[in-house]
Design a protein around this nucleic acid. Sequence first.
DNA 1: CCTACCGATCGGTAGG
DNA 2: CCTACCGATCGGTAGG
Lengths: 215, 215
Amino acid sequence: MRAEAFSVQAIAKFSHMPRRSAAEAQKTREAIVQRVADLATVEGLEGVTVGRLAADLEMSKAGVMGHFGSKQALQLAAIEEGERIFRRRVWDQAEPKRPGLRRLRALISAWLDYLADTSWSGGCLLTAAASEFDGRSGPIAEAIAAQDRLWNRILQREAKQAIEASELAADTDAERLVFQLRALALMVNHDLQLHGDERVVKRARAIAKGLLAGN
Amino acid sequence: MRAEAFSVQAIAKFSHMPRRSAAEAQKTREAIVQRVADLATVEGLEGVTVGRLAADLEMSKAGVMGHFGSKQALQLAAIEEGERIFRRRVWDQAEPKRPGLRRLRALISAWLDYLADTSWSGGCLLTAAASEFDGRSGPIAEAIAAQDRLWNRILQREAKQAIEASELAADTDAERLVFQLRALALMVNHDLQLHGDERVVKRARAIAKGLLAGN
DNA sequence: CCTACCGATCGGTAGG
DNA sequence: CCTACCGATCGGTAGG
């Protein structure tokens, strides 16, 4: 009995939480990704360290690294998580609306909801990461820039659709309009995060309403 | 002769560039501050390390640290340098103009000049630092937030002056106007740094012109 | 998914 | 302003 107990312990020594099923491993990976994405909104994608992330998750560094292979792969996974959340929280909310002005309004409304929401510790990850990586090259900077271009294109598509459908004045400059809408969102995120000033959300909604008043 | 040469070397061994005058030490300090401020626009104020900064300046780490005492003091000095540059490049350009609409226009014009300028490696330090530190507490975050509030107040003072002088419509919302102007600048910096898109400068000038059209 | 370890670098200091 | 050094932590790996 004593020998048996010892034997079990000896096995356990090399298998603290091992041989997990693929589904269990996937769950662990998702928990890591969610945690690193949120931590990065405060500390930055470079500022997060594997050691502190692992401690936060009550795992070993090697346990974390095993899912990604490198810190860069971990950062890329965090960006992808940021994109998934953004898509779910913003695009998916507006997608059911008819293309054009209605959908554009819904996109801006959901975007401001998302920015005002406190589910991120330090504001929108993609915005923070854009500022952190905008002077660098490599796959992380590329992924962030590509996402920003995509989002810009989506907004412009809806704006142009609205102009073609005469929902907005025929002489509306779609690029300028979208530039102004993106500027509002960026400014809202800035004032919310730096100053905790929640009044800016209402202000931005009012300005957006003016810009999207329609014909 | 040989002994004398040896003696000189022996002294040099413990005095590589020592006993500098206060003026020389001040010059060295300024060179460090300028370099760290510029590096921080790309790597972040946390991303800059004393070791790489020293190597970049061809100094020892201790030589750099001696001027500041801690990395945080070095970061604070970088922020102060960023404020000095911003004041010189933006506020000082507009200050000679008459208060009100003229000065407000000059401030925005100089601001966009400053953002479009390539003298920083990675865009406006204060903007980058605001994003980096907005989720944190401490003296660095405080200094950045205070500077942003000050700049906001300056713009609002000129906007209100313009409204009182009937240079802008009496029903103009100064806070909303300034919010829109700040949003333009933030968006310009974002698109310039992330996408290298220089068209946004002209676009922002056109939008600002519309916002500041006057009576 | 763990322990134990690697070389490199971190911020900072002693002492001259 | 330098050399030489400190303990702590970095990203990453071997091996089970």
